[in-house]
Amino acid sequence: MSDTLVSMKGLDFSYRTPDGSIRVLDQVDLNVERGEFTCILGRSGCGKSTLLRILAGFEQHSGGSLLIDGTPLTAPSMERIMIFQEFDQLLPWKSVRENLLFPLRKRFPDESAAQLHERSEQALALTGLSQAAGLYPRQLSGGMKQRAALARALALEPKLLLMDEPFASLDLKTRDSLQQLLLRLWRESAATMLFVTHDIQEAILLSDRLYIMDEREQGRLTCYENPLRRPRSHSMEGFKSFALRIARAFD
């Protein structure tokens, strides 16, 4: 008996525009198991970000059911933290440390300043940002900004981390190291990961379970179990063949 965190059934969503409404998601089903690393793979424009925004509570779906831990999702919550692709998600007028402390105060209102400070320092240490704590976002590289966003999200101890192509704008080397960092953080935390990407290799490297989103069918998701053992590498046995299978399904 598996432990389902996100249970989405027959979900519909349309954007309302001045020229009428655009149906983006139609009858979408998705299950995310607690503690698992789930990836959603899809071409740009197929509705991945929309799906995450609904899960974050930023957008209201029009039909179907969406349960988190068995209760209907109503509003944004610090239980579900979103990490964006764009580097500009840290508040530019706050230092890195302040960027962490500011939601922490709200998340753990009963804790003392020292305890909160401890939490932020720990998160920064885990992401290798201890030295950068006093810097302002504009002084960070793209990779450091995404690390800081990860640190900020994990420090809040969310049940579910919603990641919308967080590494898509990074160079290859930085992306590799951030993927490894993310896997380490996932192993060490209790968080469930829902990770959106358009990169097959990335999805295979990270996921326990992998969904392909179909743009021709309004976001219909097809599930694939990832057979590869961890730790994984691009050169490991079975990687290529699984990648080929996914690539075929993807086209």
Binding site: A56, M82, L91, P103
Partner: peptide, 24 residues
């Protein structure tokens, strides 16, 4: 995006005003 970040942290409309909109 900044407004979404504020909403994600559970800020009310007023909180978003004070903590996000005005400094931004």
């Amino acid at each position: 995006r900044y407004i979404d970040v504020g909403r994600n942290y559970g800020f009310s409309r007023l909180g978003i005003m004070l903590h996000i909109m005005i400094p931004a």
